[in-house]
Simulated scan of single mutants.
Amino acid sequence: MRASTFRRLMNLWPPFLFNSICVQQVSEDWTELRVVLRLRPWNRNYVRTQFGGNLFAMTDPFWMLLTMHQLGNDYFVWDKAGGIEFVAPGREDVYAHFKLEPSVIDELRAAAAGGDKVLRWFDVDITTRSGEVVARVRKQLYVRLKPKARSEASNEQPAPTT
């Protein structure tokens, strides 16, 4: 799927659409993504700040999705765990910027090459336009080479010579 198509579909996805979460940008190479949570009357909490569930939701799928697209179809990529630390009240629109470095993808491929499961934490800050941190979100991903890809890789290795 093209990144631009993905962005449009995510913005029509009801949990995002109805909570004013908008994917602003996805790079064509799937290494960067920007998302905004707009503060609206229907998504404020009792004290008129960003609802904590929406702060987590605006970041929820993106480390997994970027990693899936970078690794390709030969890998299982799942969310394993997550957490959020609330740092300051969100009294305005807030933003998250995800940047998946090529070196991280190389590390995941190398660690998963033998078929073992790999667990890795990813962090993203949720900030105001001016850069004030509102929350810090951590997501742990599970990555594993699929069995078919493992058997193909072992079949490609040359037989030992005697």
Rank of each mutant, 00 (worst) to 15 (best):
M1V: 13
M1C: 02
T5V: 10
F6G: 04
F6M: 11
F6T: 06
R7T: 05
R7E: 13
L9D: 01
L12K: 02
F18M: 06
N19F: 00
S20L: 06
C22A: 12
V23A: 08
V23G: 03
V26Y: 01
S27K: 06
S27F: 04
W30F: 12
T31H: 14
R34H: 15
R34D: 12
V36W: 01
R40K: 11
R40I: 05
N43I: 03
N45W: 02
N45Y: 07
Y46T: 08
V47Y: 10
R48N: 14
T49H: 08
Q50H: 09
G52E: 10
G53P: 01
G53L: 08
G53S: 12
N54D: 04
N54I: 00
L55W: 00
L55E: 03
L55K: 07
F56W: 15
F56D: 07
A57D: 02
A57Q: 00
A57V: 04
T59V: 02
D60V: 08
P61K: 10
F62L: 09
M64Y: 05
L65A: 04
L65F: 13
L65V: 11
L66V: 07
T67P: 09
T67A: 10
M68H: 05
H69V: 00
H69E: 10
G72H: 06
G72F: 14
Y75L: 03
Y75K: 03
F76W: 14
F76Q: 08
V77D: 12
V77L: 08
W78A: 13
W78M: 12
K80Q: 09
G82S: 13
G83V: 02
G83R: 09
I84W: 06
F86D: 10
P89Y: 00
R91Y: 09
E92A: 11
E92I: 01
Y95I: 05
A96M: 01
A96P: 12
H97M: 08
H97Q: 11
F98R: 07
L100S: 11
L100F: 05
E101H: 09
E101W: 15
E101S: 14
E101G: 01
P102S: 15
P102H: 10
S103N: 15
V104W: 09
V104P: 07
V104F: 00
I105T: 15
I105V: 11
E107W: 00
L108K: 12
R109F: 07
A110K: 14
A113Q: 12
A113G: 08
G115I: 09
G115Q: 08
D116G: 15
D116P: 03
K117W: 05
K117Y: 04
V118G: 12
L119E: 14
L119K: 05
W121D: 15
W121Y: 14
D123Y: 07
V124R: 07
D125Y: 02
G131Q: 01
G131C: 07
G131W: 11
E132D: 12
E132I: 02
V134A: 03
A135N: 05
R136M: 13
R138A: 11
K139L: 04
Q140K: 08
Q140G: 09
L141A: 06
L141E: 04
L141W: 00
L141D: 01
L141T: 04
Y142V: 04
Y142G: 03
Y142M: 15
V143E: 05
R144S: 06
L145E: 09
K146T: 10
K148N: 02
K148Y: 04
E152Y: 02
E152N: 13
A153Q: 12
S154R: 10
P158N: 06
P158H: 08
A159P: 06
P160V: 15
P160R: 11
T162E: 01
T162Y: 03
